[in-house]
Simulated assay, not measured.
Amino acid sequence: GGHGYPDNRPPQQQGGGYGYPGPSAQPPYTSSAQHNNPGHTQAFAIGEDPYGHDAPPAPAAPSGPRLRWQDLLSGIVLRPHQTFQRMRDYPVWGPALVVTFVYGLLAIFGFDEARDDVIHATLGTAVPYVLTAAVMITVSAFVLGVVTHTLARQLGGDGSWQPTVGLSMLIMTLTDAPRLIIAMFAGGDASFVQVVGWITWIAAGLLFTSMVSRSHDLAWPRALGASAIQLAALLSLIKLGTF
């Protein structure tokens, strides 16, 4: 098979004679860089994207491990942007339900008439009264969180419902805690309590907007619009409930 060629030639140059490649030679034009050269165009199936643009994007990985409940609660107040970005893929049902229920147990004492009714009622009447209020506030916060998530998805968001609802419940209760603590001692009708209520309501709007924006990858106007119903309910039912 050599026809005068030396036996120590490289394998790819050994042929069948007269300059033609033999069976062991490399097939021509197999390099991927040669597929689209003139005369050597690569074939594709009908509907196939030759450039890979139709390939689904890889899901974004979480920005970090799940935060502990202490870090979560403090992060919402002190580091909201980083906290919402990190927790956008993690459900927070435990802290959300516990904090909201405890808030509901105390919320009734932030209204003057309701507080007087509970204080002057018998123990058998006051306990079911307080527990019922706590359950109703917890359910209301959950429903409002679902509404916020639904609006965010309607506006083009892509976040999960469990983190959105849980974080919205935490924002709703944590931002109202300063007003509630003052109202328990100064009364819900006090002017200072009303001012604190307005300030904390604005803070809640900022936190809702940041949370929805990072959880659903929305611009802040749409994120604020998704939170509008929950903010309106928070203002009318809790913040200014004595108005």
Rank of each mutant, 00 (worst) to 15 (best):
P56L: 10
L73Q: 03
G64I: 12
P50E: 06
P59R: 13
P65L: 05
D54N: 14
P62V: 14
A60K: 11
A45E: 13
P56G: 01
A58F: 11
G22V: 05
S32M: 02
P50I: 01
P21T: 08
H40C: 05
Q34L: 10
P28D: 02
L73I: 11
P27F: 01
D71Q: 14
L67D: 00
E48P: 00
A61D: 03
P50K: 06
P21Q: 12
L73V: 08
S24Y: 04
W69A: 15
G47D: 02
I46G: 06
N37I: 03
S31H: 10
N36F: 03
H40K: 11
P59G: 07
N37Y: 02
L72G: 00
H40Y: 09
P56D: 03
H53R: 14
Q26W: 04
N36V: 02
S32A: 03
N37P: 00
D49M: 12
D71A: 15
P59S: 10
F44A: 14
N37C: 02
P57H: 12
Q42R: 15
D49A: 15
Q70N: 10
N37R: 13
N37F: 06
L72R: 00
A33E: 04
P62Q: 07
D49C: 11
S63A: 10
S31N: 08
Q70P: 02
P59Q: 06
H40P: 00
S24L: 11
R68L: 07
W69T: 11
L72M: 04
S63K: 12
P65S: 09
Y29V: 15
A60R: 14
Q70H: 11
